[in-house]
């Protein structure tokens, strides 16, 4: 369970989030909102990439601002741009990079990396230069590199923004099948039909918090 308790956040004079309180227990939650609504900042607080300047976050009772390492072990994060989240030269090495501190042998790391790639349609790409993968494949690789750590929660910050329509659909369908709790930040409203809960943020506050249909209707009114 992810809890936001009276979250406020400001960059200098500029308030990005103001008194956000949420308890996320559902398995598939989406954050939507306009640019600058604070949704990405809120998502980053879940794994301690950004710490709130007011209030606190709890992930299963653990505060990422205090115990970042413990939380990051359980929360995976997929970013928008696959080119800057793939850190190693080949697909296999990139997945294995996540396992570097697990005390596994090199052979075991490689075996697990291969297994992960195979499960998400990248079988045989272990030695493939990561930068030569297609956009959709790169985002799958980023996902593999997170899932290999078997997190409880997966936060995705606009992971489909740079993908074509077909890859967007495939990626979200994949997310829906995962056993992890998913927090998806997105602009692609059409893909949220199967989500359990949609939180609409506007100027740093929660504007709507509901099932997808009513929440998105509220959002469409808000921006029109």
């Amino acid at each position: 369970m992810i809890e936001f308790e009276g979250i406020g956040h400001r960059y200098g004079e500029h308030a990005v989030l103001d008194d956000v309180t949420l308890r996320l227990t559902e398995q598939r939650v989406a954050f939507v909102g306009a640019n600058g609504s604070g949704k990405s900042t809120l998502a980053r607080m879940i794994n301690g990439l950004v710490h709130p300047t007011g209030g606190r976050v709890l992930v299963d009772g653990v505060d990422p601002a205090r115990q970042g390492r413990a939380v990051r072990n359980r929360v995976g994060f997929v970013f928008t741009n696959p080119d800057s989240q793939i850190v190693m030269p080949t697909a296999g090495e990139d997945v294995a990079f996540s396992l570097r501190k697990k005390g596994l042998s090199r052979a075991e790391r490689e075996r697990r990396a291969s297994g992960m790639l195979a499960r998400y349609g990248l079988a045989g790409y272990e030695e493939h230069p990561a930068h030569q993968l297609s956009g959709g494949q790169k985002q799958l690789l980023a996902l593999c590199s997170m899932l290999v750590l078997e997190p409880d929660v997966l936060v995705c910050d606009e992971p489909t923004t740079l993908l074509d329509l077909r890859n967007k659909r495939r990626f979200v369908e994949l997310l829906e099948q995962l056993p992890q709790q998913i927090v998806l930040v997105t602009h692609d409203l059409d893909l949220l039909g199967n989500f359990d809960r949609v939180v609409v943020l506007d100027e740093g506050r929660v504007a709507a918090d509901d099932l997808p249909e009513p929440a998105l209707e509220h959002y469409r009114k808000l921006i029109s």
Partner: peptide, 12 residues
Amino acid sequence: SEARNTSISQSS
């Protein structure tokens, strides 16, 4: 130390 990582966005 965790205390130092107060925020990636902190300017100081």
